[in-house]
Design a protein around this nucleic acid. Structure first.
Lengths: 241, 241
DNA sequence: CTCATTTATTGAATCAGATTCATAATCTGC
DNA sequence: GCAGATTATGAATCTGATTCAATAAATGAG
């Protein structure tokens, strides 16, 4: 039944086209001015057709975030496969975030919006589940690194679960993303390179957990060298810049 | 000119009434279903009158967040006045957050929404500035504690600015707030008491910064005792539970 | 106290934009 | 090539924020 397959493929292609158009429009005119009619028009389809793919505007936004999350997950998976000590891999997760943000500057802004009660509640249950599923691997990978460290005797949990350790590190990263995107909140604090700062604080926190081998977070050049090394060994194609 | 004063007071009272009504409605029907017409109706005023106070719905939401931020700032000011070591005061900031969330469970959900590009951009510039101004003291107090620690020889900055140290701790707290409110993101991780966990990670991070006196973050009872002590010494009236 | 003038309140009308759905077009199997 | 099924279309509908002409209240000079 080749016809059925072709139909499915065409449907998927059209969906992709809608998503790409939406992304362009957000980039051009801002999320604030995104209109369903415009997305349809710019994609050369009718509004009704757009609604065959997405049950609502919020649904579409959630689909965009899901796309990004999958790319993010790909980066995390490279880290998981990277042959290095758990502590280095955990740090590489932070570096992955940093690179990801550089390549998808709109992602966290959009994700922040989509995770909001208003948008979350207005999207379809199906779409929400898809997003949650896409997120799953991110958590798994981080937890896995924690477990590896414990197995290899480089970290003691001291009563925490691996997930609870992850959450501490995750919070740091998520909080920095938020501060960066909260207009005006961060400029008062006069922070030049928030993501490099995040990397440094990540090392500090890992030291605080007594995760061996300890790293001298105050050694700026060493920090930069490590970031550089991870860029080359793990994300070579992604950090030409 | 007592008449003018009375007018101003009445205007302020009416504004407060609108805000209180809005809060009730949000609590009852959710942010998703908040309608300007409803707020006006429930406050026994016409829609147009509501718009004399708030230039848009987003403006009103921002005013709500600003109210909360002021209360939050009051708690931080208590900490600033508390007679204790900088490290204890810094930890007390985390405890303040924890108590604040318990008393205003809707705040961070709302704040998350308001800090979103869409809402931020739709509010009036004036209202935005008011919110930023209300936030200012929060940052100042935290930076001040860092500076005190340095002055008293209990912390070395090692090339960071006091603001950059603050931002690391701030990120942790903000990230946890976000994870808590991102539906479904955290249950997968199976975290029972996220704010207690935040407190523990805060101690871990302070240790990582080598902020003296160090605290054994793995000692659960000691952690709980400290939290308890801060509740009583600083926030006695606020944590009857 | 009265009236002209200014200021504030009102809510029906307007507007924007998301969503629907009757109609038209296209496809399918025979 | 045709009947029936499926899909695409975009004008019409619906929701809810925002405006503004009409109305009411306050002011203050005489």
């Amino acid at each position: 039944m080749s016809t059925k397959e072709r139909k499915l493929r065409e449907f998927a292609e059209r969906e992709q086209r809608f998503l790409d158009t939406a992304r362009e429009l957000i980039q051009r005119d801002g999320l604030l001015n995104l209109a369903m009619a415009r997305i349809a028009e710019e994609s050369d389809y009718a509004v009704g057709t757009l609604y065959q793919h997405f049950s609502s505007k919020e649904d579409l936004l959630m689909a965009l975030v899901t796309e990004d999350v999958r790319m993010h997950a790909d980066m995390f998976e490279r880290v998981a496969r990277w042959d290095a000590k758990p502590r280095e891999r955990m740090f590489a997760i932070g570096v992955a975030d940093m690179i990801f943000v550089r390549r998808h500057p709109e992602h966290f802004r959009l994700a922040q919006y989509v995770l909001t009660e208003v948008v979350w509640g207005a999207a379809s249950a199906t779409r929400r589940q898809i997003l949650l599923d896409a997120n799953q691997p991110l958590g798994e990978i981080v937890h896995g690194i924690v477990r590896d460290a414990v197995t290899q005797g480089e970290l003691e949990l001291n009563g925490l679960s691996p997930e609870e350790v992850s959450v501490g590190l995750w919070s740091l990263a998520m909080g920095m993303h938020n501060l960066v995107h909260a207009e005006g909140m961060l400029q008062d604090f006069n922070v030049r390179e928030p993501y490099r700062l995040m990397c440094r604080h990540l090392q500090t926190q890992l030291n605080g957990l007594n995760w061996r081998p300890l790293f001298d977070a105050t050694d700026g050049p060493a920090l930069d060298a490590l970031i550089e090394r991870i860029c080359h060994e793990v994300f070579d194609d992604l950090c030409s810049q």
